[in-house]
Nucleic acid binder design. Structure first.
Lengths: 230, 230
DNA sequence: TCAATAAATTGACATGAATCATATAAAAAC
DNA sequence: GTTTTTATATGATTCATGTCAATTTATTGA
């Protein structure tokens, strides 16, 4: 009986992929027209407000999707491989990137022209249906994150994020986090100092072990409880 | 040059409606199968976590869509007439309402069976495309609200909400708000006392006039500036 | 019409979390 | 290998906003 709104830092990895709904010829069309790019760590993949000529498929790597903000950015989600970036900018006329995206590590992406993408939606309703499914999964994730940010306090948010990283991104309780404490603070929506303090608390209480960027979750039960309570 | 992320309490009223993309016979199919209901003020229209057998079209009235939370709920948006409630619960298998909705005033809704709605998506890709458009408009709104809640402080959020009410809901600078200060506090995500204090500040500064539930925006420019700055 | 309840208001206080200042440790550059 | 820069860590302070308590005003119901 897990809360649909826990683990709010990324979408649930259901393995489903909208491209499976395409016909062979449609798949080939994408293959022919896609552009493959590589990005180094830290590069901007798409820029909020700019013209969105394409949808981005993250093939390898790890990225953050965020709203640009004056004092600080707001990370909407992190993107593990196998996910699309930029779906929400599909809109009748002005296709503008609604958010920015940047890589945490060296990454490989495929660009799919937005006009082609739209065309496929209009000619293949099964594909459209799958796109709707994906958009709704992202909506759940966004709602969960929104809830987490507004109702939970520091310890809850850090616990939530650690669990999400372990369960949804790295799929193991012990992982090497390619983020600075500063990045991690941005991800949890708090100050760097607070992240460090909370991590120290968790360490002192024996809930986690850390060694630089190596993080190991020891007491998952407890972290889940902290994440729930807030 | 307006920020796409201002006025975050409801979606932009673009007049477009996904049902326009339906054929006559499909429209008739909906007409035949829809259920019309009336709700009094304060009633729950849909309940987070319950089985979603239908999509809700708000014909008349005003409603809030919110996540249920332990200490307090989180309002995701308010819904003026002409909008759909429950779109994000369209999902392959488990169609569960992802949020609750309740009316602010007496309202009239039409229920459209979710299986019919799914069927229409699968058989009419133009309809599906329009649904995608709507979902993305809601995504923009959610992002904006998320941003507003996490980056702006009290005065900014109240200004934002007042502007949104005037511009997007009531479409006039002087309106009667059918919400208690408590409701308004919930809508802005702050305590009742804080709402009252901020409103008093705005009143003292001559930015608004209030008389009970009557609210008039006097200095829109200034409110916009406050909303932007946070 | 008056009591009873609910809503609005105001001030005093508590607290979570950011900010600032400073120190240490690690990584990068030369 | 030493300097310079960047990241991590910790304590003191400040600030925004919620909570609590008390009062006034409005609304509802008998």
């Amino acid at each position: 009986m897990e809360n649909i709104y826990s683990n709010s830092c990324t979408v649930y990895p259901n393995g489903e992929n909208c491209f499976n709904a395409l016909t062979e010829s449609e798949k080939k069309l994408i293959e022919k027209n896609k552009v493959i790019l590589t990005y180094s760590k830290g590069e901007t993949v798409c820029k909020q407000g700019s013209f969105a000529s394409h949808i981005v498929y993250l093939k390898k790597g790890l990225a953050k999707v965020y709203l640009e903000g004056k004092p600080k950015n707001l990370i909407l989600k992190i993107i593990p491989p196998g996910n699309l970036i930029g779906l929400p900018c599909i809109h009748d006329e002005n296709n503008i990137f609604l958010y920015s995206a940047a890589t945490y590590i060296n990454s490989e992406v495929e660009l799919i022209g937005i006009d082609l993408f739209k065309q496929l939606i209009l000619q293949n309703s099964s594909f459209a249906y799958r796109v709707i499914n994906i958009l709704n999964e992202h909506a759940v994730q966004t709602f969960g994150r929104f809830h987490s940010f507004t109702n939970k306090q520091l310890h809850g948010r850090v616990a939530d994020t650690l669990l999400c990283l372990a369960q949804r991104i790295f799929k193991t309780e012990s992982f090497n986090l390619p983020l600075t404490r500063n990045d991690f603070a941005e991800l949890t929506g708090m100050s760097t100092e607070s992240v460090i303090r909370v991590m120290k608390d968790f360490k002192d209480d024996g809930f986690i072990k850390t060694d630089g960027k190596e993080i190991e979750l020891i007491n998952i039960e407890m972290l889940m409880k902290i994440s729930e309570v807030g």
